[in-house]
């Protein structure tokens, strides 16, 4: 998993492990209890036009998911609302209430201006197109 990929690097470790630290939890109006960070599982596919990154983010919506690109670090953050109903009492919990966080280090091969993302049924798909200079190009010979 740690094999050097030319266009994207995935820091290892449950918290990302890399240089970007998750944004420090702002003073929570509900209390000072820190929310756990969840590392969502991802897939990365390599295609002729670029990379496709998919992340399982059940519970994430367009309004609570933030995708940021800062320098060469692409980060996903989503804050999931806890309970299905205000008076619901948890009996058994396997997915902790917390915040999804994952970050990736992009190389210059990725065209930052054309990154697109879509979210459907809890699956995020981010397309990272190859920059023109990284794509194979045929050079015309002028006569």
């Amino acid at each position: 998993m740690s094999d050097a990929h030319p266009s994207i690097r995935v820091p290892l470790g449950p918290q990302g492990g890399g240089p970007p630290t998750p944004p420090e939890p702002a003073a929570d109006e509900a209390g000072a209890r820190p929310r756990p960070t969840i590392t969502p599982p991802i897939d990365i596919h390599d295609g002729p036009d670029g990379l496709t990154l998919e992340a399982d983010l059940p519970g994430a919506t367009e309004s609570n998911l933030v995708i940021q690109l800062e320098h060469n670090v692409l980060s996903l953050d989503a804050r999931i609302d806890p309970d299905p109903a205000p008076d619901a009492r948890p009996i058994h919990q396997e997915f902790p209430v917390g915040d999804y966080h994952r970050s990736f280090i992009l190389s210059d091969d990725v065209d930052r201006d054309r990154i697109t993302a879509e979210l459907k049924d809890g699956v995020l798909r981010v397309f990272l197109p190859k920059a023109d200079r990284a794509r194979a190009r045929r050079i015309e010979i002028k006569s």
Partner: peptide
């Protein structure tokens, strides 16, 4: 898949994480 169980006065709620499943 992971499961959460909740109870309210009227019902039991079973939540299952199934991203990308129809």
């Amino acid at each position: 898949p992971p499961v959460d169980l909740f109870e309210t006065a009227e019902e039991t709620l079973v939540l299952v994480d199934l991203p990308g499943v129809d």
